[in-house]
Design a protein around this nucleic acid. Sequence first.
DNA 1: GCTTTCGATGTTTGCGTGAACATAAGACCA
DNA 2: TGGTCTTATGTTCACGCAAACATCGAAAGC
Lengths: 356, 356
Amino acid sequence: MTTGADSTAAALPRSTALDDAAARRRVSMADVAKRAGVSAQTVSRVSNGFPGVVEETRQAVLQAMSELGYRPNSAARALKRGEFRSIGVILFTLSTTGNMRTLEGIAASASEAGYAITLIPVSAPTQIGVRSAFTRLDELAVDAVIVIMEVHLLDSSMFALPPGVHVVVVDSDAGDRYAVVDTDQADGARQAVEHLLGLGHRTVHHLAGPEGSFAAERRAKAWRETLEASGREVPEPLRGDWSGESGYRAGLELADDPSCTAVFCANDQMALGVYRALRERGRRVPEDVSIVGFDDIPDATAFDPPLTTVHQDFAEVGRRCVEQALEQVRGGASRPGSTLVPTHLVERASTAAPPR
Amino acid sequence: MTTGADSTAAALPRSTALDDAAARRRVSMADVAKRAGVSAQTVSRVSNGFPGVVEETRQAVLQAMSELGYRPNSAARALKRGEFRSIGVILFTLSTTGNMRTLEGIAASASEAGYAITLIPVSAPTQIGVRSAFTRLDELAVDAVIVIMEVHLLDSSMFALPPGVHVVVVDSDAGDRYAVVDTDQADGARQAVEHLLGLGHRTVHHLAGPEGSFAAERRAKAWRETLEASGREVPEPLRGDWSGESGYRAGLELADDPSCTAVFCANDQMALGVYRALRERGRRVPEDVSIVGFDDIPDATAFDPPLTTVHQDFAEVGRRCVEQALEQVRGGASRPGSTLVPTHLVERASTAAPPR
DNA sequence: GCTTTCGATGTTTGCGTGAACATAAGACCA
DNA sequence: TGGTCTTATGTTCACGCAAACATCGAAAGC
């Protein structure tokens, strides 16, 4: 860039050079003020909609603004106000329905509250990846951070958390240390299992999510406890990695077990894989085997048969996250504690009474 | 968190009231400078890794920084430097594989280049929604904007685009006005159709995306042209809205048409719905009807049968977007023109020769 | 021994805003 | 008519940082 010469010229009231400089440099309040024949402060007042500016002046300023194409400089604003009006979101992947939807909810609520969202991607779900994301926070213009991630990855990094940055965590059990928002996964799992037991199944098999996932753990735990509470036998759970592929592999095992009449899958995608495996083995859903999923992805209605699954209100999760974050920003204090968003079972066509 | 008091106490060995005030304020370079016994400028040099600071001094500054928990104030930095090091992304929904993946790609590339991503959600895919998103741009700290959206919604709003903001558009035909990045959808559609014709199908039916979608139009157009180029009959295309539900409804029609032996679906989710409709009507995939999708969503391998589909490299799209955006930021000029990312057909098990 | 040079560090300044304070010009009342 | 409010507008300054320039001390060259 070689604007140096121009800006120097701008200091001197000259003709062409000045125009050039003004064109190159961004329009500031001072430019608008000069054009409108008022002081910069008056421009500021108009810009912020403050009272005490007579209508005539206001119009003159407004006109000068639009003529010059004035945009307030948010850096200067942030510097002056000491806040950025932006919330950072740290996450590893958008590839799961939950994360994606939660992010959407966050984005919607934040923009409604006049806050921007700054995405902080984590390159890899490792301590190093997470740590580097948090390091990047140092130079990021955010007032609060929402972490969508298994918090056990964070433990050691969290100590490096810059003070003054408020944190809300999703999908974690760190309610003792941070503000946590999540869906009531345990209750969702309970509803799923009880629904199947209510249909007459002797017990319910479980295709769990990967190890190390709190979501998977919570769902598995609630499944087990619900069975135990009813005095049912608890079959050995299978494990997938959330993918349809892994569901298919697990489904093959399940299909070979004639005692298996009901499966609670930890997410919908794995359920899709299970469908395929069962069909391949000649077992019908729901006549021979009932399936319940978790998430209620949009495609669940297009599954064949449409999937009975546990619906999670991710938009609400996002909303609460922002709510918590802003509360902290405004209150200045961190407030540990959990917020649970209710889940509910959506009954479609993949469950039925067991075969006799 | 109330650790502030400690660090302040160290900086200013004075009374409580003062400590409190300083604790509330963020640590600035001046604080670090005082603590380390150097000038603020030296702190700045260390902070930016500039040369000309003797190792001993550097260490002292570094130590003072960490003792005080110093974080550079990015607002002040942006104000001084005249750039934000942030790219805005305007999009309506994350709910489609493409948008989500593209966003991921953008986020990854941007953070690699030292840029942050600011999400600018559009509340509704209407002129008003889009316009308000662009208006919000005024107060947003971004150097460039990537628009992931059907550009025909933008037309009139674009005139209000603040000067000095560079734009890259995804999924659009506005290559004459803006820098556009997209996958080579026409070629993908061509490959899909030719694959089916190559298997011996007389013609290929098409389940198109919604009206007004450029992606849908492009795919439909290429489908038609490929058929025409081979001198095949062009059946009336059906229309869905990208959802599995709409695919199911269209599939029902398709199933009733005995002449239909091959369907090219404009996306994978609709293909899933078609699967279900065909199965309900007793038509097998691929023995009776071959299906090809578009997108290659992760679940495509878990479909039953695994779906043959057109793969799009969204990560690459995101990468190119950032590349284009940064080029504009650095070059200062807007550069219209299209960048096409190749697509390719992934053959799985949903296609076969037609029944005889 | 005296300047010259250069490397390390300090001082000044201004980026664009908006809070706080200052001023000017009427309006109103006694 | 003089004084007191009120209202509209202007001035000053600081936010935190870093570019530009200034200074200082020591090593190098004569």
